[in-house]
Amino acid sequence: AEKTGIVNVSSSLNVREGASTSSKVIGSLSGNTKVTIVGEEGAFYKIEYKGSHSYVAKEYIKDIKDE
């Protein structure tokens, strides 16, 4: 089941290729951006990003809701 969340950062949140802080950064999301969460892996959520799937750190996503 998909969930949505809100990016909870003051500046921007790195979007990564994989579920690791050493993964390549492929983009960023600004605070209060709504994201669609399709899964989770460790400390990361797998999200829909620009037509494919990428990862963001869970600690920076708030207001998780089931869609």
Score class of each variant (00 low, 15 high):
residue 1 A to V: 14
residue 40 E to N: 04
residue 34 K to C: 11
residue 19 A to L: 04
residue 29 L to N: 00
residue 37 I to A: 00
residue 55 Y to Q: 00
residue 45 Y to N: 00
residue 58 K to R: 07
residue 35 V to S: 00
residue 46 K to S: 04
residue 14 N to I: 14
residue 32 N to L: 09
residue 66 D to A: 11
residue 5 G to R: 04
residue 9 V to I: 11
residue 2 E to V: 15
residue 16 R to T: 09
residue 64 I to F: 09
residue 34 K to W: 09
residue 18 G to S: 13
residue 33 T to K: 05
residue 5 G to I: 05
residue 15 V to G: 01
residue 29 L to W: 02
residue 5 G to L: 05
residue 52 S to G: 15
residue 35 V to W: 02
residue 43 A to F: 08
residue 28 S to Q: 14
residue 48 E to M: 14
residue 28 S to F: 13
residue 67 E to C: 14
residue 36 T to W: 14
residue 32 N to V: 05
residue 50 K to W: 07
residue 67 E to W: 08
residue 49 Y to S: 01
residue 48 E to W: 15
residue 44 F to W: 13
residue 48 E to L: 15
residue 28 S to W: 14
residue 64 I to M: 08
residue 22 S to E: 12
residue 41 E to Y: 09
residue 17 E to F: 07
residue 66 D to K: 09
residue 30 S to I: 12
residue 62 K to Q: 10
residue 21 T to N: 14
residue 22 S to Y: 09
residue 45 Y to K: 01
residue 26 I to K: 04
residue 15 V to H: 02
residue 51 G to V: 03
residue 30 S to N: 10
residue 36 T to Q: 08
residue 62 K to R: 12
residue 31 G to C: 14
residue 44 F to A: 02
residue 47 I to R: 00
residue 13 L to F: 04
residue 22 S to P: 03
residue 11 S to W: 09
residue 57 A to H: 07
residue 31 G to N: 15
residue 32 N to H: 10
residue 27 G to N: 02
residue 6 I to W: 12
residue 28 S to A: 11
residue 60 Y to C: 15
residue 51 G to I: 02
residue 46 K to V: 13
residue 29 L to H: 01
residue 1 A to T: 13
residue 59 E to L: 10
residue 4 T to A: 07
residue 18 G to V: 06
residue 28 S to N: 09
residue 19 A to G: 05
residue 6 I to R: 09
residue 57 A to D: 08
residue 49 Y to Q: 01
residue 13 L to Q: 03
residue 2 E to F: 15
residue 5 G to E: 03
residue 67 E to V: 14
residue 6 I to V: 11
residue 48 E to P: 04
residue 57 A to P: 14
residue 17 E to T: 07
residue 52 S to Q: 12
residue 14 N to C: 15
residue 44 F to G: 00
residue 64 I to V: 13
residue 23 S to C: 08
residue 29 L to T: 02
residue 46 K to R: 10
residue 43 A to G: 11
residue 59 E to C: 12
residue 34 K to A: 07
residue 55 Y to A: 00
residue 48 E to A: 10
residue 57 A to Y: 10
residue 43 A to E: 14
residue 53 H to M: 09
residue 41 E to R: 06
residue 18 G to T: 12
residue 35 V to G: 00
residue 66 D to F: 14
residue 26 I to P: 01
residue 54 S to P: 04
residue 25 V to T: 06
residue 12 S to A: 11
residue 51 G to E: 06
residue 36 T to V: 14
residue 31 G to Y: 13
residue 62 K to L: 11
residue 57 A to F: 10
residue 6 I to A: 04
residue 19 A to V: 05
residue 26 I to N: 04
residue 41 E to G: 03
residue 59 E to D: 08
residue 44 F to C: 04
residue 50 K to D: 09
residue 47 I to A: 01
residue 59 E to M: 12
residue 29 L to C: 04
residue 13 L to V: 15
residue 1 A to F: 14
residue 46 K to F: 05
residue 45 Y to R: 01
residue 19 A to W: 05
residue 31 G to I: 09
residue 61 I to D: 01
residue 21 T to P: 12
residue 31 G to M: 12
residue 56 V to T: 01
residue 59 E to Y: 09
residue 14 N to V: 15
residue 24 K to L: 08
residue 57 A to E: 15
residue 36 T to D: 04
residue 55 Y to P: 00
residue 30 S to A: 14
residue 29 L to I: 10
residue 53 H to V: 13
residue 67 E to P: 12
residue 56 V to W: 01
residue 43 A to D: 15
residue 29 L to F: 04
residue 12 S to H: 13
residue 31 G to W: 11
residue 10 S to D: 11
residue 30 S to K: 14
residue 47 I to Q: 00
residue 9 V to W: 07
residue 63 D to H: 10
residue 47 I to M: 01
residue 4 T to M: 10
residue 35 V to M: 02
residue 28 S to P: 02
residue 21 T to K: 12
residue 7 V to G: 03
residue 8 N to I: 13
residue 37 I to K: 00
residue 36 T to K: 13
residue 11 S to Y: 10
residue 58 K to I: 05
residue 62 K to M: 13
residue 53 H to G: 04
residue 43 A to K: 09
residue 1 A to S: 13
residue 14 N to H: 12
residue 62 K to H: 09
residue 54 S to W: 09
residue 10 S to F: 09
residue 23 S to F: 06
residue 41 E to S: 09
residue 13 L to P: 08
residue 12 S to Y: 13
residue 66 D to T: 13
residue 12 S to R: 14
residue 18 G to L: 11
residue 64 I to P: 06
residue 21 T to Y: 15
residue 9 V to D: 06
residue 5 G to D: 02
residue 56 V to C: 04
residue 38 V to A: 04
residue 52 S to F: 10
residue 7 V to M: 03
residue 25 V to E: 03
residue 45 Y to G: 00
residue 7 V to Q: 02
residue 45 Y to T: 01
residue 11 S to E: 12
residue 21 T to I: 13
residue 62 K to F: 10
residue 23 S to D: 05
residue 64 I to W: 09
residue 61 I to K: 00
residue 2 E to T: 15
residue 24 K to N: 08
residue 51 G to L: 05
residue 19 A to N: 04
residue 57 A to V: 07
residue 5 G to P: 02
residue 53 H to Q: 08
residue 60 Y to L: 06
residue 55 Y to G: 00
residue 58 K to V: 04
residue 20 S to M: 06
residue 10 S to A: 13
residue 61 I to H: 01
residue 1 A to R: 13
residue 51 G to T: 05
residue 44 F to T: 02
residue 20 S to K: 06
residue 11 S to H: 14
residue 39 G to M: 03
residue 16 R to Q: 10
residue 6 I to Y: 12
residue 39 G to C: 06
residue 10 S to C: 15
residue 15 V to L: 06
residue 40 E to H: 05
residue 1 A to G: 13
residue 47 I to S: 00
residue 65 K to V: 13
residue 67 E to S: 13
residue 22 S to V: 09
residue 45 Y to M: 02
residue 25 V to H: 03
residue 66 D to W: 15
residue 66 D to I: 14
residue 32 N to Q: 10
residue 46 K to E: 06
residue 35 V to L: 05
residue 15 V to R: 02
residue 30 S to F: 11
residue 61 I to W: 02
residue 29 L to K: 01
residue 20 S to Y: 08
residue 31 G to S: 14
residue 50 K to S: 07
residue 27 G to M: 03
residue 49 Y to M: 02
residue 17 E to C: 09
residue 53 H to P: 06
residue 60 Y to T: 04
residue 11 S to I: 12
